[in-house]
Each structure stands twice: as structure tokens, then as C-alpha cells.
């Protein structure tokens, strides 16, 4: 790394700073300005609406459930993909990235095709008398789907870097597989895992298109925070929409700062 000397580097830096400021910083500031346009009192008042609180509560529940599921299975998948060799490993490895690029609308639509009235599992759904499509379970499926890659993608490189040897060392010292996992593997990947969990959480809380399609956005029943914003815009309750958006954005920043700290931390331990 070096000090920028001459006009070319300075110009390059200038362009980069300006681009990021206009593209990212300006809109962020705009929404804060919009939310507080009629003062802080109105801002807090609009958040204190039971409908808003219910929406946040549902968002949080879905996000936590998705985090739990994807942490458990994501760690397993990452370990298997790194430590084991088997036919089709490359295929599954590439498959993991798919939720990054599948449109959330299609994700929601998948749930309907599987669990809707004419879905593949319609008889099963009917027999067990559970509602999945247009209900919270369907929204959970969508949330798990869209946030699936994060834990896997963060844990895999860490596992690869640590290598097989610490686990082998534990085995030669007599530790069972479970003890090895708890005492050796887990502590090794904890920062990477936490990083993945943060991303999962942020992604899950912000999910919109998928839960819109899979849940149907029924007020008080399947309305998450993002869905509330969408509904509020429709009803021209701009301040309320902005306020919820600001809270979500603030949460995102918190996660972001947390991740930055984590990253520093992992860099130091390595």
C-alpha cells in the first residue's frame, strides 16, 4: 500500500469516493431525512403501532428460526463439503450458491407450487390439516432458502484453512468425534460461523419478495416488517414506512459494524 502521489491516483480516489457517496451514502441519508421530516415524535409514534410491532415480531421470529436451522445444517454441509470426498461434491458445492441468484419471487412461488392447493404435497398438507403456503411455515421455508448459503460459504474457507490436522490430532489424543467437534472444530470456526450467522440474520430480516408471495401479506397474520413497509406505501402512510425502513436499516448497520469487528478479530487470530 502506498500514499497516492501525482494526480492520477488522486483522481481515481476521487471518482471512487464520489461514486460511492452518490450511489450508496446519499440514498441512506435521504431515508433518514425522510423518516424524521416531521420530527422525532411522529417517528416514534408511528413505530408504536401494534401492527408495526406485530410485523417486527414476526420478522424476528422467522429470522431466528432461519438462523438456527441454517447454523446447524449449514455447519454440517460445510464440514461434509470440505472434509469428505464423494461423487457429486462439485455439483452440490455449486448448488449452494443458487439462492444468491434465484429471484425471491420465484422462491416464494416454489412454496406455492409445492404446498399450494394444487401443489405436489397438497394431499399431505390436507391430511395433516396444516397450512404451509400463504402461512408462516411457507414464509419460514422461503427465509431458510434465501439465507442458506451464508453460513456454508463463511465456514467452508475457515475449515479448509484450519486443515484436517487439528481434528486428527484430537483423534490421536483419544477424543471421540463429538468431543473433537465441540472442543476443536467449533472453536476453530467460531468467528467464521458468527460472521455467517450475522449475514444470515440480516438477509432473513430483509427478505421481501419471497415472503410476499409465499405468505400472502395478510395483516396481523403473515405480515413481516418489510411487508408492512410495502403495505404502508400503498396506503400512502409515508412516515410510517420510512420509520420502519430506518429501523431495518439501523439494524443492518449494527450487523455490518459487528461483522467488521469480527473480521478484524479473525484476521488477528490467523
Amino acid at each position: 500500500m502506498r500514499e497516492p502521489k501525482g494526480w492520477v491516483p488522486k483522481l481515481l480516489i476521487g471518482i471512487a469516493v464520489l461514486y460511492l457517496a452518490v450511489l450508496i451514502l446519499l440514498p441512506v441519508l435521504a431515508i433518514f431525512q425522510g423518516a424524521f421530516a416531521q420530527g422525532a415524535a411522529v417517528f416514534f409514534e408511528s413505530l408504536n403501532d401494534p401492527q408495526v410491532i406485530a410485523a417486527f415480531w414476526l420478522s424476528i421470529q422467522l429470522a431466528i428460526a432461519a438462523v438456527v436451522i441454517n447454523t446447524i445444517f449449514g455447519t454440517t454441509v460445510a464440514w461434509v463439503l470440505v472434509r469428505q470426498e464423494f461423487f457429486g461434491r462439485a455439483f452440490f458445492n455449486a448448488l449452494v450458491d443458487l439462492p444468491f441468484v434465484v429471484s425471491p419471487v420465484i422462491t416464494g412461488y416454489m412454496v406455492i407450487l409445492l404446498f399450494g392447493r394444487q401443489g405436489w404435497f397438497a394431499p399431505l398438507v390436507k391430511a395433516t390439516d396444516t397450512q404451509i403456503a400463504f402461512a408462516v411455515p411457507g414464509m419460514l421455508l422461503v427465509t431458510v432458502f434465501v439465507s442458506l448459503p451464508f453460513v456454508i460459504r463463511e465456514v467452508m474457507p475457515v475449515l479448509r484453512e484450519i486443515g484436517h490436522e487439528p481434528e486428527q490430532a484430537a483423534h490421536t489424543l483419544g477424543a471421540s468425534s463429538w468431543r473433537t467437534f465441540v472442543r476443536v472444530t467449533m472453536p476453530g470456526i467460531r468467528w467464521g460461523l458468527l460472521y455467517g450467522i450475522s449475514l444470515t440474520l440480516a438477509r432473513a430480516l430483509g427478505e421481501f419478495g419471497g415472503v410476499l408471495v409465499a405468505g400472502g401479506a395478510v395483516t396481523g397474520k403473515t405480515e413481516t416488517a418489510t411487508l408492512y413497509i410495502f403495505a404502508a406505501l400503498d396506503e400512502r402512510q409515508y412516515i410510517s414506512a420510512y420509520a420502519v425502513a430506518v429501523v431495518l436499516a439501523l439494524f443492518s448497520f449494527t450487523v455490518l459494524i459487528g461483522m467488521e469487528i469480527l473480521r478484524k478479530r479473525t484476521e488477528i487470530t490467523q
Binding site: T172, G174, V184, P187, G188, T269
Partner: peptide, 19 residues
Amino acid sequence: PQQRNTGFVFQNYSLFRHM
């Protein structure tokens, strides 16, 4: 390996960094 009771010293030691 657990059942063999062998002490193994790895080339790069493989010490558990978090312990």
C-alpha cells in the same frame, strides 16, 4: 485412532490455538 493410544506429533504441531 482413538482406540490405538498413540502419541502423535505433527510437523506443524497442530496445537489447538484456542486452548
